[in-house]
Nucleic acid binder design. Sequence first.
RNA 1: UCCCCGAUAGCUCAAUGGUAGAGCGAGCGGCUGUUAACCGCUAGGCUGUAGGUUCGAGUCCUACUCGGGGAGCCA
Length: 501
Amino acid sequence: MKASTTISNLKHHDGEEVTLAGWVYKNRPSGKLVFLVVRDGTGLCQCVIEKGDASADYFDDAKRLSQEASVVIRGTVNADERSVGGYELRVTGLDIVHASTDYPITPKSHGVEFLFKHRHLWFRSQRQFLIMRLRHTLIDAIRSFFNTNGFTCIDTPIFAPSAGEGAQTLFEVDYFGDPVYLAQTGQLYLEAACMSHGKVYCFGPTFRAEKSKTRRHLTEFWMVEPEIAYASLDEVIDVAEDFVCSIVERMLNDHRDDLIELGRDITELEKIKKPFYRVRYHEAAELLRGPKAKALLERDLEEKNARITELDQLIIDLEAQGETAKKQWQKDKAAQEIVAAREESSELKEQVANIPHHMELAANFKIGSDLGGSDETIISRLHDKPVFVTHYPASVKAFYMRRDRENPDLVENFDMLATEGFGEVIGGSAREEDYDRLLKRISEEKLPQADYEWYLDLRRYGSVPHGGFGLGLERTVSWLCGLRHIRETIPYPRMMGAVYP
RNA sequence: UCCCCGAUAGCUCAAUGGUAGAGCGAGCGGCUGUUAACCGCUAGGCUGUAGGUUCGAGUCCUACUCGGGGAGCCA
């Protein structure tokens, strides 16, 4: 009942007899042959069972095996191009560990709602399996970067007595009769820790009660936050740049094939090398109001409209194809392509409808307001590498951000916009190290000073310039894997109105 | 919170206001070094809920519930 090797290691056992322990991914039985595709958590392997084999008393059982039955299977390894993964197993023995009947997730298409209701089973599907492996590697790459660059991991609490950021987006929890909040960030706690260790980071779940139902939002997500003592804004940005380069490189090294299988355009990731672009907020505003942004959106409008026309024609053609098709599977295929084309078309139509609005927002962008989602997309798409946008107006940013000493209307902060319009992945800043300035900001924001006494202490005893940033893990996974929706990047997504399973 | 779209078999989708269908999946049989195989048969439905219009509603109208997409907000 125990595996002697794994599917990923079959290449080292060509010609030998091995035992695999796994689950049936697909079964194609016939009169004299059974093709069993088995997965074992390391890959897929086709196992061939012939009725002619003298000892094949398990042939009829094998024929009836259905999707996701658990099996321990012995056989001889053969290199074979016709097989997934290049190796197949000529079966010599089969133990059925547990049957599986009416497995809900079939190889055919399913809707999003259905799949997420079956998240606990959906994990087993190849694509979800790959995404979780990529996420795993990314987590390791993140920790490795900090661990090998002199950072100490200091975990911060999840129950927090007061808000780190906007108070409307907090989850309130009853804590022995008193209200506490689920942490939105560990930053303030980390600032304290960096005064002890110099360079620190935390990596854990954070919670935002934002009522947003978009492809970019989760109510529970993972964030890594480094914090560095004696660092200026530029030095913090340097770290962010090295950090992003190192995780991208690691993903390309370890998962090139997986990324390609997921449909990711690798060449876009290969461009992510130092130096990234650094643009001040005021320059970004000029960019938005300038001719390049306008041209980009106009070209977008043209391309999208052209694609819509193309899709409409495609739908007509497919309908004709479906009617004249002789084979049922051809009709089926046409029908499914129609569904896909309609979906793409209606999505594009919505985007097209939004473009004039986005153009207006960009063209009339007012200095002093925050960059909107569409503005970020425009700036990101005007560059072929990530962009750091720095020095935002203080009025739209958090109280702890360090005032620009040369221009007191601005703060020393930065957002890193990912490539290809994926939007903000990192937000960071230099922190206000001056006691009086910080205290003034706390009272301006009408925050309860008593709650922040410990935080003010950091400015009473040996305060130094320092700063850090936060990177959203799931947004990074979706950026690097090229996934259109963030919900696939976390094992159990928590979104507005979605907490099952 | 606002705008748009949707809800029909276990799943994915059809169905001029006029008898609810197909494919997949499931079950049975046949057949093939198969790659979403294929062929035949069988089972499977109070068309999201509640009202309304109509001789007649899956289809039209209203409200609600749930889901998807977008806006705002954000990592």
